Simulated assay, not measured.
Amino acid sequence: MSLTVACVVLGALVAARASATSPSRRLSGPDVPAGVTAGIAVFDRTTGRFTEQLNAETQFRSASVVKLLLALDVLWDLGPGYRIPAADRTRLEAMLRPSDDGVAGDYWTQRGGSRIIERTATRLGLTGTAPPPAAYPGYWGYTALTASDTVRIYRYLLDQAPTAVRDFVMGSLRRSTRCANDGYDQHFGIPSAFIGPWAVKQGWSGFASGGCTPDAGTPLPPAAS
């Protein structure tokens, strides 16, 4: 089993962590279960430093986390002052909120497959991201990604992307549905460990649905500004 965790720490996330722990408790480092390979990178935007790193440059299968790169590739072409066409807005929201695989597959085919990864890696300065292996050209979820590069993606979104891009992508993630379109409960990990608001794109591969039901799929309300 492998696990990639990348977190860009925001003020709300820091406050949530503080409220969930005793003032006298000191965090000791990642506690990784036996038999699990984990890549972890936690970056604090307030101090501009990584507070946790473990195998941060190790490549893992990205699964649906690559949808962030697909979305940025689409939005990049629209230029400054853009307005997202209604059709793309609907499709991108479906890809980011309930993690629709069909939309991701369509963009992958229409926009050049592995060339999407090569373009976005160059634009964002990603050093450990690579397209799927040559034997699996259509498997966009097999894109290789590191914890450090995942942090770089979020830092681009939060600190460098045009405001409209940041607000659209992060707003879509903030309103993610609990149930993904494939029936998987995508509120595992960061969403289950921290008090909101949070915005995160989950990725999973080779796991059963986990029992997520339509009743659990109600979108979260927008986060307070």
Rank of each mutant, 00 (worst) to 15 (best):
E52P: 00
A164H: 08
A63P: 07
D100E: 15
R97N: 05
I117Q: 01
Y139K: 07
D77S: 15
G105T: 12
T51D: 10
A130Y: 04
V66A: 11
V151L: 04
T129M: 04
D106V: 12
D159N: 11
D77Q: 14
V65F: 03
E93R: 14
G128A: 10
S99K: 05
T150W: 02
D149Q: 04
V66R: 00
D101A: 09
A56H: 10
T129R: 03
A164S: 13
L75K: 07
G81H: 08
G141T: 11
G141Q: 11
Q110T: 10
L124S: 04
Q59P: 07
R49E: 13
G105M: 03
D77I: 04
G125N: 07
R152P: 01
L124Y: 03
R89H: 12
Y82A: 15
A94S: 14
L78D: 06
D77G: 14
P137G: 07
G128H: 12
A147P: 09
V103I: 15
F60W: 09
G128M: 02
D77P: 02
G81M: 08
A130K: 06
T127N: 11
Q53W: 03
R49N: 11
Q160V: 09
A56N: 08
L69Q: 02
R91E: 14
T109Q: 13
R123F: 06
G141S: 11
Y82K: 10
V151F: 02
A86G: 06
A164V: 12
V74M: 06
A71R: 00
D101L: 04
D77Y: 09
V74R: 15
D73E: 14
L145S: 01
R119F: 07
T163L: 13
T150E: 15
L145A: 02
Y107F: 15
T122P: 00
T120S: 12
E52N: 10
A71D: 02
D73N: 13
T90C: 07
P85A: 13
L54N: 01
L124M: 08
A56K: 07
L68N: 02
V66H: 00
N55F: 01
F60Y: 15
D106H: 10
D159G: 05
D106R: 14
